[in-house]
């Protein structure tokens, strides 16, 4: 592992590191050399117009998309490259999807216990105890026996967060977690995300919830055309963006 990471460049002390990430779909470049380092317990918020590559970048971070070149480390362990035990690494990287992707044939509890039992090989009772704790932390212990179809969108997304949390990941990726929700259900999910952050989770979030970014993020990153255009703490980022493209994007988002 050490030699591999040396060959790809020395990792930083960051919890999640992306270096020189490139990716094209066919001849169309989506990521043009992304460098990003997320520190322990930091919440990094990624903004950008659609097609800017932000979701692709996020999906590269657990290799649902394969980057063409570049390297990604989680706590100094190389994620990209040959010989990596991808399934082992993915246990350390929680992912929350825009469309929840809950398993419709399983209950809320079953959704959370599945990976605990099949990946971590926990006995049933232990897995269920862990899963109940995770469901409790998202405020849904009373919905454990419900199937996804019996839950509201907001509740489904909170179960999905519990599913990722239960594996006790080092870092969590959120891919537009609220954009499929009715407006009145967004708040519950954001509250849960805030709670997760307060527990000290390292988080990389792609979302359009500007108000939430302002309140909760440690750092905001603006992407356009497959590159990071600028980044900074939310106060400065929203009050005094440095780049013209950022200003144009923000004024469009404010209407």
């Amino acid at each position: 592992m050490e030699t591999v990471s040396n060959r790809a460049g020395t990792p930083s002390t960051a919890t999640l590191s992306l270096r020189a990430l490139h990716k094209s779909f066919g001849t169309f470049p989506v990521l043009n050399g992304i460098d990003l380092h997320v520190q322990r317990s930091e919440m990094v918020f990624v903004l950008g117009p659609s097609g800017s590559g932000k979701s692709t970048m996020l999906r590269c971070c657990n290799r649902l998309e394969e980057p063409d070149s570049g390297a990604i480390w989680v706590e100094g362990d190389l994620l990209t490259g040959p010989g990596v035990d991808l399934n082992k690494m993915r246990q350390r990287i929680g992912m929350v999807f825009q469309s929840f992707n809950l398993y419709p044939h399983l209950t809320a509890l079953g959704n959370v216990t599945l990976a605990l039992r099949r990946v971590l090989k926990m006995p049933r009772a232990e897995a269920e105890a862990e899963a109940m704790a995770a469901l409790k932390s998202v405020g849904l212990s009373d919905r454990a026996r419900h199937t996804p179809a019996q839950l509201s969108g907001g509740q489904q997304q909170r179960v999905a967060i519990a599913r990722a949390l239960a594996l006790k990941p080092t870092v969590m990726l959120f891919d537009e977690p609220t954009s499929a929700l009715d407006p009145e259900l967004v708040g519950d999910v954001l509250d849960v995300m805030r709670e997760v952050k307060e527990q000290g989770m390292t988080m990389l979030v792609v979302s359009h919830e500007m108000q939430f970014a302002r309140e909760a993020a440690d750092r905001v990153v603006f992407m356009d055309g497959g590159s990071i255009i600028e980044q900074g703490p939310p106060d400065r980022f929203f009050a005094a963006p440095e780049q013209e493209r950022t200003r144009a994007f923000l004024s469009r988002m404010r209407g």
């Binding site: 992912m95 398993y103 990946v119």
Partner: peptide
């Protein structure tokens, strides 16, 4: 839906 596979793989399942 392909999202089902992605969700499962993202939790480390083979």
């Amino acid at each position: 839906p392909v999202g089902q596979t992605e969700a499962a793989r993202s939790t480390g399942m083979t």
